[in-house]
């Protein structure tokens, strides 16, 4: 049986000694913002690279893909540091795989409760029926993801 990641983190935390707690600081806010920016960059660069490939511009496409990969690695680095303050999506304490499933589920449920349904209504009210339909489609998939996460937790294993 391998050592739970949470234990590794706690061990590292102890060895870090005099560092202040990260929770509630401006630094953690900046880290979260940096994660959001780099995660978005990764995705947008990938998208632009796909279009460049379709256009036959393989040089620019390769550069965009490399930058996307690099942004992804930076986002991963932000997550590494954010882990000190708990699981990055919800701030819940880091634990094993089952605990991670629980955290991801909690984040998804928040999105389902507060986000996507209202987003569809906003888009419809502002005259964008297609974007409203997109939000509803996304929500349908998220509901399915949440069901899979719940099932995986019940089984006590991975999704």
């Amino acid at each position: 049986m391998s050592t739970p990641l949470a234990q590794v983190d706690r061990d590292r935390e102890a060895s870090r000694g005099r560092l202040p707690p990260l929770v509630g600081t401006l630094t953690i806010r900046r880290l979260r913002e940096a994660l959001a920016r780099d995660a978005v960059r990764r995705q947008v660069y990938e998208h632009l690279a796909s279009i460049a490939e379709i256009e036959g511009a393989h040089g620019p496409a390769a550069l965009l893909r490399e930058l996307a990969e690099s942004s992804g690695a930076l986002a991963d680095g932000h997550i590494d540091l954010l882990r000190r303050a708990g699981e990055p999506l919800t701030g819940a304490p880091m634990g094993g795989a089952v605990s991670s499933l629980r955290a991801v589920l909690r984040d998804l449920e928040g999105d389902l409760d507060e986000g996507l349904a209202g987003d569809a209504e906003t888009a419809a009210a502002e005259g964008f029926p297609d974007i409203a339909s997109w939000f509803r489609s996304v929500r349908a998939q998220r509901v399915d993801h949440a069901a899979r996460l719940m099932a995986a937790q019940t089984e006590g294993g991975a999704a």
């Binding site: 029926p129 297609d130 339909s133 997109w134 509803r136 489609s137 996304v138 349908a140 998939q141 399915d144």
Partner: peptide, 25 residues
């Protein structure tokens, strides 16, 4: 077919047809 392909199918249909407004399930 179900929740898993709903957003993907939206994208296929929207790119094909700019007048696509409702991705019904």
């Amino acid at each position: 077919y179900g929740a898993a392909d709903t957003p993907w199918f939206f994208r296929v249909l929207k790119k094909k047809q700019p007048l696509f407004f409702n991705n019904f399930t």
